[in-house]
Nucleic acid binder design. Structure first.
Lengths: 110, 110
DNA sequence: CTCTTTCGTTAGTCACCGCTTACGGTAAGC
DNA sequence: GCTTACCGTAAGCGGTGACTAACGAAAGAG
């Protein structure tokens, strides 16, 4: 359910850029906007989306506001992926084996 | 770089639904569309996006066309997440510790 | 108190995306 | 050869999202 927001949040290139910058350490909004090709309000909106997706956390520090990565959203995406990881690998292996036997379509039943 | 397509592909709810159905096993386009609230061409377009993102593979089977999950795209997303996973956890732990010492803002320098 | 800095929010515009309808193309069955 | 089933693609439309400009609020320095 909630991982929907996380995927949608990381779908935007600018938002991924912001997220990757925060991976290096906590930063304020102005520091993030400085160096990005968009205005500061745009960064603020992106941070709001990332916050609602559980990907970042904000902390007021005087007049400034420091943002930081939150492992919560990251964990949700990982859990969703792991749900298909083993299944996808085994299915892919079966497909490869089937492709090998494509010229020998006899039953593999004992 | 290429993971951008994967995130954008999984950002759409209908596309995630298609992907989750394929996780249970290979299916044709008509079988996928039957049971989804969208038309068959819509499913076909979604499958095209998923294919370009490296998330599914297609194989012609007579007049039908069978789609299947491709672990390639899934692995790219996992790699991208793992790039931040440890960093995010340690940063979060440091933040928690900082929050505990918030009433004792003295330098931790030796 | 005033001025500056920093940030969030709103209004408005513009491009992109997802969906449907309609059409063409290919493989199997009579 | 003709029909039926299955699928991809093009055109068109409505809705959502990303961005900028402008305004307002809060903290700190003078």
């Amino acid at each position: 359910m909630t991982n929907a927001n996380a995927f949608a949040a990381l779908a935007d290139p600018t938002r991924r850029e912001v997220f990757e910058r925060l991976a290096s350490g906590p930063l304020a909004v102005g520091e993030l906007a400085h160096g990005l090709p968009v205005s500061r309000p745009a960064v603020s909106q992106h941070l709001k989306v990332l916050k609602e997706a559980g990907l970042v956390t904000d902390r007021p520090e005087g007049a400034r506001r420091v943002y930081q990565i939150d492992p919560h959203g990251l964990g949700q995406i990982r859990a969703w992926l792991d749900q298909f990881w083993d299944n996808a690998l085994s299915a892919f292996a079966a497909e490869v084996e089937r492709s090998v036997d494509e010229s020998d379509p006899e039953k593999e039943k004992p």
